[in-house]
Design a binder for these strands. Structure first.
Lengths: 224, 224
DNA sequence: ACGGGATTTCGATGTCTCGTCGAAATCTCC
DNA sequence: GGAGATTTCGACGAGACATCGAAATCCCGT
């Protein structure tokens, strides 16, 4: 019901979901900035202004798509949050996090940019990120105290870990000129996740030789 | 000479350079996308359209600013390119690269975005990046053959290294909500460079215990 | 059957940004 | 004093996000 569409296309299912799907696809393919509301509207058979009946703004679309990931991320993180030794714990959290980011439709940096511009609108996303950072910092700190990790500044080390995992996520979804010629260097999300988590682990471990064993245990725990 | 400015401000020095300085500052503070040509024009006392007398487009500004960094980057890299063992070589190249990116006015990702949208316009930048990647891949490959690095896929490992260093660079210049509360976690470019280079090195070394010594040697070589 | 209300879409419009174009104002030099 | 070069301006166009009122349809009570 409602006024019929100019295109003649009658809405089959949930228009809101169709818009979300189209936006997810376009954002993933071209990036958030390069995607226009007209494009999104066109792919679902609507006029540009009609999208605003379902979403207040382009950023609202971003927020909705980000929220979709949030839940499964929580689940993965809670799975890993059982009282495990810091090295395995760190590995599991980072691995799950990168995996989630790579599989989602949104580039983390797009989200970050939007959140930076409108902090109150993206308050939940920012709070989520803050919790992740705090959790990681606690793990790093615990590991440094226990001697598993080399002594140092937990906060700086945590920031570095996150920065590098985010970079990995971005490169996974954004091809370089070299990728265009030889095919993508990072093909699977699990590859990116494993590389990022292992690198962080080895950077922190007091005895990096333990890293294969830690990785093995953490991955086994994540399977369950 | 030329028509006087509406603002009454007479150009003191080189208008082109003044525009570049203003753009560098604004890009660094707010990011490329969030900065408007009107803002840039206003800070140098020009009308919006007058900036286009000195630069063809906003992207041209980006290109000019990127070019300014390019030279010193070449120098740093050539310094490190002397025939050194792969571990030290890798460390030196990554360290110099991150340092350069952190000190420059531009976020690497802004540059990447623009280059992706207009490859021919940013051809030199893209070629530069390709050379860096190829050089790193050669180092990684050599290290894997010599046994210094653990065996694996050189291309993937190189992509991961670069992805993580770029992420570090981005986080260095873009504060998180946590940074706003407690002050920036990464304060000095050298800190970011050291963390990124060390992490990459330890991720690759067959015997990560060598990393402190490699780091020491590489940093000493860079001093000279 | 008919009219009121709710739902969904449209078209027109406003604002902002990048970028273009021709005109205007100034200086230099003849 | 005038021709040409240099630099700036103001007006304008295109494209994007967003708003608003009107229009088209369906549902429901009478």
């Amino acid at each position: 019901m409602g006024r019929p569409r100019r295109t003649g296309v009658t809405p089959t299912g949930n228009p809101r979901q169709e818009i979300l799907d189209a936006a997810a696809r376009l954002f993933a393919d071209q990036g958030y900035v390069a995607t226009t509301m007209s494009e999104i509207a066109k792919t679902v058979g609507l006029g540009q202004s009609s999208v605003y009946y379902w979403f207040r703004s382009k950023e609202d679309l971003l927020l909705a798509l980000a929220g979709a990931n949030r839940e499964s991320l929580e689940v993965a993180r809670r799975l890993a949050a059982r009282s495990t030794p810091p090295p395995e714990h760190l590995y599991a959290v980072l691995y799950a996090d990168v995996l989630q980011m790579c599989r989602g439709a949104l580039d983390f940096y797009d989200l970050e940019r939007a959140a930076h511009a409108q902090p109150e609108f993206f308050a939940e996303i920012l709070a989520d990120y803050g919790r992740l950072r705090a959790e990681l910092e606690a793990i790093v700190d615990a590991g440094m105290r226990s001697g598993d990790f080399a002594a140092g500044d937990a906060r700086t080390a945590t920031a570095a870990c996150l920065a590098q995992t985010e970079g990995m996520q971005h490169r996974f979804r954004t091809p370089t000129p070299d990728d265009a010629q030889r095919g993508p260097a990072l093909t699977e999300p699990v590859t990116a996740a494993r590389l990022a988590a292992t690198a962080a682990l080895r950077a922190l471990l007091a005895d990096p030789a333990r890293s294969p064993e830690v990785e093995r245990v953490a991955l086994a725990a994540l399977e369950a």
